[in-house]
Nucleic acid binder design. Structure first.
Lengths: 339, 339
DNA sequence: CTGAAAGCGCTTACAG
DNA sequence: CTGAAAGCGCTTACAG
């Protein structure tokens, strides 16, 4: 690899001049600029980002860190795509790590990001309190929370309105005549799950339907849990006629279980799933499920722009961005009857 | 952020001793070790990876670069998961970039990886020749090709046996009695597409079925192309009774188009799709498609291990790993008749 | 076993 | 406009 010294000796100038030619061409004679540029081209020289970033105390690394549970979850894949597109456009590079909701792995990865001196970190927080996050904060590395909020640390956050999303879903079911609506969702320690349940309950209350604890099931977000909880819910003495599944994985578990039990959707049980599937894949499912679609790609974009703006202006007060989800009505609830 | 100097002054030793305590504890008195460790703990000190990597000519950055077309494609998501899992286990961090098959973006990203001095790069090559790749090679940065091969540069490569995969699919269709089998695949500039077409043709030949150019359609890998080519194929005077779709996106396009045209699967047209869907999502489709499943996660794992071993031993001759795909028989071809 | 010093490849005041 | 020099935070021969 050619180095600054190689270029400078080839061009017959000092390394400082080469550096200036690259970083502030206007500060250099056209003549010099030309000589240096020729040497750079001849050698295929590119400044080492590694060396460059060591230089200044607050030298930018132009690297952003992203920590997610699992890139194989289409929700996070879409999120990451949004993040990376904005990052790449702005000359930033992405470090990605999967941590499977494991606090130990998460801490380890956040620690790595700190020692990498990344310019910022984007991630969906698991718990309310987190030592590693605090550490990043103290190291002056800005953090943007996506999808979920922290309840302690004040930082930029981009979420969708989960309460509104779940409310829309449940209201839709109520308007179709359902009164016994089950909720199968993720753990309440995650803010998004907590809020979706809240939206579920609010919708019921607003329509004067009592909340029946028997109809509320929560578990770790997985297809398997979706199955288990569906079985549990359909086995009670007075089972629900409609279900809200709290996320994409659980929705698939619910659908698979209902199919196994030969319970037809929407005739015997109506279903709304939280989170849409990519590629319009929902349209190919049997039946195409009505879902609450989050603007996931946009969450990624907004979060990244927020992060970049904070890198520019570290003292700006924390911003909360709340995007609106959309109810995609398909075939899993039967036909839609307007109120 | 605490620095080596902070620790050394707090512990009352030189920075060299602190460095040794961290990197080679046995070279230091237990007494010293203890003092230094106490200072490290008190300050929450972690060595800067940025500074560390600048030190040695061939200093490891412990970063791997991964460049893919699109993380939203479940195939690449699974691949990346395999890569990241092995990387993380071995203390490596991942830089990820999406380039959408765009040679310009790809070159730009590879260039960035070079200036980041990553320890190695994993990616599915698009074209046969690539200047940026050569550059990485010359910069001593090892490259592992996944999913597709380069025809010029000799480097470690992990692929699946695409010829065998397509052969299995087409043989399956032939055994079910089909003679007019259409092929809808990706561009032949991509080695995997080329090989799948080759497998398709080989299977026909081995069964004495003439190859009909009218039944072969190729286009850029997308759902939209899948649609267009399906229409084209079903509009010819003597349309196929079975189809092989060359990848997951095109398979979805084919299914959607057949559904639109009210052509039933498998009764009117049998279908095998290349690439499986994650989460057993295929089982939820209508109908569940028979697919050629690649061990995608394993491709990622093997590629990463290959890369790590090459970092250890740069002179080792290039290795080609060929994994075997598997035909997952589901409902889109009708019942399976053994020969 | 420990410390002083050089050096990794850059950038940026500071002189001239 | 240009160059000499300091310094970013480490690691590692080289002495002692």
């Amino acid at each position: 690899m050619a180095t600054l010294l190689d270029v400078s000796s080839k061009a017959g100038v000092s390394i400082a001049t080469v550096s200036r030619t690259i970083n502030k061409p206007s500060s250099v004679t056209p003549m010099t600029r030309h000589k240096v540029q020729a040497a750079i081209d001849a050698l295929g020289y590119r400044p080492s980002r590694v060396a460059r970033r060591l230089r200044v105390e607050h030298g930018s690394t132009h690297i952003l860190g992203v920590i997610i549970p699992d890139i194989q979850n289409p929700f996070f894949a879409e999120l990451v795509r949004g993040i990376e597109d904005v990052a790449q456009t702005n000359g930033y590079t992405l470090i990605l790590a999967n941590v499977d909701e494991d606090p130990v792995r998460q801490s380890r990865c956040l620690e790595t990001l700190r020692t990498e001196s990344v310019d910022g970190v984007i991630f969906p927080p698991v718990t309310g309190e987190n030592a590693s996050i605090r550490m990043l904060h103290e190291a002056g590395i800005p953090v943007v929370c996506v999808d979920r909020r922290m309840d302690t640390l004040e930082c930029d956050t981009v979420v969708t309105d989960n309460i509104a999303g779940a409310k829309k879903a449940v209201t839709h079911l109520i308007q179709l005549g359902h009164r016994r609506i089950g909720y199968i969702g993720g753990m309440p320690i995650v803010s998004s799950s907590r809020e979706r349940r809240m939206g579920y309950e609010t919708a019921l209350q607003e329509h004067g339907i009592p909340i029946d604890p028997d109809l509320i099931c929560e578990g770790t977000r997985s297809k398997e849990q979706g199955r288990t909880l569906t079985h549990a819910l359909m086995d009670i003495s007075h089972p629900p006629t409609a279900l809200l599944a709290g996320n994409n994985l659980m929705t698939l578990g619910v659908m698979a279980t209902l199919r196994e039990r030969q319970i037809t959707i929407p005739e015997q049980v109506a279903l709304v799933g939280y989170d849409d599937l990519p590629w319009n894949l929902a349209l190919a499912l049997n039946p195409p499920p009505t879902t609450v679609r989050q603007p996931t790609y946009q969450i990624g974009c907004r979060a990244t722009r927020l992060l970049l703006s904070r890198i520019e202006e570290p003292q700006r007060p924390p911003t909360l961005v709340v995007l609106q989800p959309e109810l995609k009505i398909r075939a899993s609830c039967g036909s839609y009857i307007t109120q």
